[in-house]
Computed example of a mutant assay.
Amino acid sequence: MSRRPLGQLEAEVLAALAGLGGSARTAELVERLDGNPAYTTVNTILHRLYEKKLVSRTRAGRHYLYRLAVDESELVAGRMREHLRHASDPGGVLNRFVRTLTDEEARQLRGFLDRPEDGR
């Protein structure tokens, strides 16, 4: 079964959850998201992410505590790969992307390219 691509809010919720480094209630995630999304909207997104097996949840009283169920770097890298796969000019996209990197990010990328077997 293949996963549907993540929507923007789904990606933001996952990033906020990853940034917390542990479990969080819906209300905690609402506070961390830009644009003041409604509690019910974030709750719906969390339910969808749970169904996609991207987050796990445990009951805590009347609420759930949500936790990432996947590796964030693998998830984001997969999204980047999917965007490249659908681009008519993947080389052009990569060129524009690397031109936006900070010096530190470019240094890290060079290191990864020099040692592709490292995996970190």
Rank of each mutant, 00 (worst) to 15 (best):
D89E: 12
L65V: 06
L33G: 02
D103V: 15
T41D: 08
A77N: 10
Q108M: 10
D71P: 01
E31Q: 14
L9G: 05
S2P: 14
V93T: 10
L29Y: 01
R4G: 09
R79M: 13
A38N: 04
S88V: 09
A27G: 02
V30I: 02
L49W: 11
G7L: 12
A77E: 13
R96M: 06
L109D: 05
L20F: 08
T40W: 07
R48I: 06
V55C: 12
Y50W: 14
R32M: 08
R96I: 00
G111T: 07
G21T: 12
L84Q: 05
G19V: 11
I45N: 03
L9W: 06
G119C: 02
V93F: 06
E12L: 14
L113W: 07
R67L: 13
E31L: 14
L94R: 05
A60E: 14
A69K: 09
L6N: 11
G22A: 13
V30Q: 03
A69M: 05
G92Y: 02
R79Q: 15
V42Q: 06
E82I: 00
V93S: 01
A27P: 00
T58K: 14
M80T: 05
A77T: 15
A106S: 09
D114C: 03
E12Q: 15
T41R: 13
E12I: 03
D89C: 02
H63I: 00
Y50F: 14
G19F: 08
R59N: 04
P37E: 06
L68N: 05
H83F: 10
A16R: 10
G92R: 07
A18T: 07
H86V: 13
K52G: 03
S2F: 04
R4S: 11
L113P: 03
P90M: 08
A27V: 14
M1H: 10
T102D: 07
H47E: 12
V93C: 01
L68Q: 04
G22R: 10
E82W: 07
L46R: 03
Y64Q: 12
S73A: 12
A15R: 13
F112T: 07
Y39F: 15
L33F: 06
G61I: 09
K53V: 03
L17K: 02
F112H: 11
P5A: 14
D71H: 04
A15Q: 08
A38E: 14
R99V: 01
T40N: 10
L101K: 00
